[in-house]
């Protein structure tokens, strides 16, 4: 051993101090305990979700069985009145139907608008594909309020569309485009577009196009190949996009409030009105619970028939 040390004068292990020996102070050891680390990691999020998501939901569930007292006081008298009222009064049935119809129209509209660009971007080899994809997120980054405001400028009585149509003599009276279901659907489609394009893009992008070529090789024309091969294979993306779109639109508030007419009342607007102007929190809470129930039921039914796993694994 002595000899080995002599042979290698460049290396004497006593020149560099050893890694610290002994134990760390108590609190450092505490910090490095597995349980402590897990606690630090899980603690805050569990706290946050418990106090600011679960408990609040339970409170409105509780409120929904209470009654509005004089001056907006919440009377803790347990009854199902709010729920029965919601389902008996025709106006709320209309609201529910309207919400569902608008959500459906937006889902279909967004699918129609989104599919071709998504397909095009996924199939055509382009240098700037990434840039074009990033550009799609730009509206997502832009304030929804601002975008709705812009639709007002575009669709209004003196808006861009009416002004130019009249100038070119196509119409003589301004069209009532704004404050209509059309305006709401248009605004919402614009909002949800990225949520529809990206899932479809990623499934089409993952399709092995040799399958399509094989179909053509077996005698299918382009349209048949698309119909029998590409479209079925892009179904998970379509299903995922539609689910997200539907859920987002049925809970939307800003767009129907700003672009809709008096008829275009959605369930979120009923909730907001009850809380903000009528001070009827129990009824507003009941409406919120009904909204949540519909959403959960929708997701469960969807899961049953389409399968959430397929979408989530996408």
């Amino acid at each position: 051993m002595e000899k080995a040390a002599l042979k290698a004068p460049a290396y004497r292990s006593d020149e560099i101090p050893d890694a610290a020996t002994g134990q760390e102070p108590f609190f450092i050891r505490l910090l490095q305990q597995r349980g402590f680390i897990a606690g630090v990691q899980f603690g805050p999020i569990v706290f946050w979700i418990f106090f600011f998501l679960l408990i609040p939901m339970l409170i409105i569930l509780f409120y929904s069985f209470c009654q509005r007292g004089p001056g907006g006081v919440i009377e803790h008298s347990f009854s199902l009145k709010n729920y029965t009222h919601f389902f008996v009064a025709p106006i709320y049935r209309k609201v529910l139907i309207k919400s569902a119809v608008i959500a459906l129209e937006v889902t279909l509209g967004a699918l129609l608008v989104a599919y071709i660009p998504a397909y095009y971007l996924a199939t055509v080899k382009m240098k700037n594909r990434i840039l074009l994809l990033i550009m799609l997120i730009v509206p997502f980054w832009t304030s929804l309020l601002i975008r709705n405001y812009s639709w007002i400028l575009i669709l209004g009585r003196e808006g861009i569309i009416n002004v130019y149509l009249m100038q070119w003599g196509i119409i003589s009276e301004p069209l009532q485009l704004l404050y209509s279901e059309f305006a709401v659907v248009l605004g919402l489609v614009h909002w949800v577009l990225p949520f529809m394009i990206f899932p479809i893009f990623s499934t089409v992008d993952n399709i092995d196009f040799d399958l399509v070529n094989a179909a053509k090789n077996l005698g299918a024309n382009s349209l048949q190949a698309f119909w029998r091969v590409t479209l079925p294979l892009s179904m998970p993306g379509i299903a995922g996009g539609c689910l997200l779109t539907f859920i987002l639109t049925i809970g939307s508030f800003v767009t129907p409030s700003l672009l809709g007419g008096p008829e275009d009342l959605m369930i979120t607007m009923v909730i907001a009105e009850r809380f903000l102007t009528l001070f009827d929190w129990p009824f507003g809470s009941a409406a919120s619970i009904i909204y949540l129930a519909i959403m959960i039921a929708f997701v469960l039914v969807y899961d049953r028939f389409v399968g959430l796993k397929r979408i989530l694994n996408m």
Binding site: F42, I45, V46, I49, F51, F52, L53, I55, P56, M57, I59, I60, Y63, L244, I247, L248, I250, G251, S252, F253, T268, I271, A272, F275, W281, G284, S285, S288, Y291, L292, M295
Partner: peptide, 27 residues
Amino acid sequence: IKAALNAVTFAPMVISGVVMGVAILSF
């Protein structure tokens, strides 16, 4: 619990802001 946590974390993304708002206000 991490799978459950993962799922619950995403709830605020899909639940209507209005409902989240009234629930937190009530809380």
